[in-house]
């Protein structure tokens, strides 16, 4: 790989299986960060737990690698406390749509200006192959012994229904397009979701590189992502799944912009001194 300030100089020990789709996602991300000209000191990678959630370990930037399912609340807070930072969340389908489902729902309402990449391998990778919320119907696992009969969650339709202002799908089978989608997601003002198809070579023998290729297609230029109803119809399409920007809403103000603390003062919280007079004033009113 060419010089990239988000890459490490020394070789690093990566805990992904050889052939894993995560390598392609990492290459796309490194390229996206570099091409956007971001400074390392201003980028914070936030994640929970899972194979996907290890991504921050392999990017040379700040990271907050927290709890399984809990990446969005700290990510929201980090951006809220310091809007100068670029905050990127790396998550898996189990981490985000399973354990973290409630945070996902409410992050869409809050709309922080952060970017969420979900590595969707349709399986719990790190815990060795149980069904995730996006595992396809019928797939047998050591736990779902008769095959999955719970309806898979459709993250695209869910996100469009919640008016997530940037909803896209990418595929690890195509690093270049994934990089482009990532760049647009990071640049988008507000909460952006990119669900990235990611083959898991060890625990998902069904949704392979070939399967993802055969079951997806790119949206063409004629497609208008700003039409929400049209976007919802598109989001409902499965096998083949549409790839690209499915929905775009440029009119939602991000969380941080609604916070009164930034109305007259743009400085991050850590740069501010607290005026003790305010306490004195409040106390005096209590006499």
């Amino acid at each position: 790989m060419t010089a990239n300030r988000f890459n490490f100089e020394q070789t690093i020990d990566i805990a992904w299986c050889p052939g894993c789709g995560n390598y392609a996602i990492r290459r796309a991300l490194l390229a996206a960060l570099e091409e956007l000209g971001l400074e390392r000191e201003k980028v914070v990678m936030v994640s929970g737990i899972g194979q996907a959630a290890k991504m921050p370990q392999y990017i040379n930037a700040h990271f907050f690698n927290g709890l399984h399912g809990r990446a969005l609340p700290p990510a929201t807070a980090i951006k809220a406390c310091n809007p100068d930072l670029t905050v990127i969340v790396e998550s898996g389908d189990g981490d985000m749509y399973g354990e973290g489902g409630n945070h996902f729902l409410h992050a869409t309402r809050r709309n922080p200006d952060i970017t969420l990449f979900v590595h969707d391998n349709m399986i719990y990778g790190l815990t060795k192959g149980q069904a995730s919320p996006t595992t396809r119907l019928g797939m047998k696992t050591p736990v779902q012994v008769e095959g999955v009969f719970e309806k898979p969650l459709n993250p695209m339709a869910l996100a469009v229904s919640l008016d997530v202002p940037f909803v896209a799908r990418a595929s690890a089978a195509d690093i270049d397009q994934t990089k482009e989608i990532m760049k647009r997601a990071i640049l988008h003002r507000g909460f952006s979701l990119v669900d990235i198809f990611q083959p898991c070579v060890s625990f998902n023998k069904f949704n392979t590189f070939k399967w993802f290729k055969d079951n997806s297609y790119y949206l063409d230029d004629a497609y208008d992502p700003t039409d929400r109803v049209g976007a919802f119809r598109k989001a409902l399409e499965e096998e083949p799944f549409p790839l690209g920007i499915i929905y775009l809403n440029n009119d939602r103000a991000p969380f941080e912009e609604n916070l009164p603390v930034y109305r007259h003062d743009k400085r991050p919280l850590y740069q501010r001194d607290f005026p003790m007079e305010i306490i004195r004033d409040i106390l005096k009113q209590k006499t």
Binding site: F64, G66, L67, P73, A77, A80, C81, H103, L269
Partner: peptide, 20 residues
Amino acid sequence: QVEDEVGVVNMAIGAWYAGA
């Protein structure tokens, strides 16, 4: 006001991490 207490505590920790 956060969606649940799990979110509350994780948000508070994230805020400290970012200097609040």
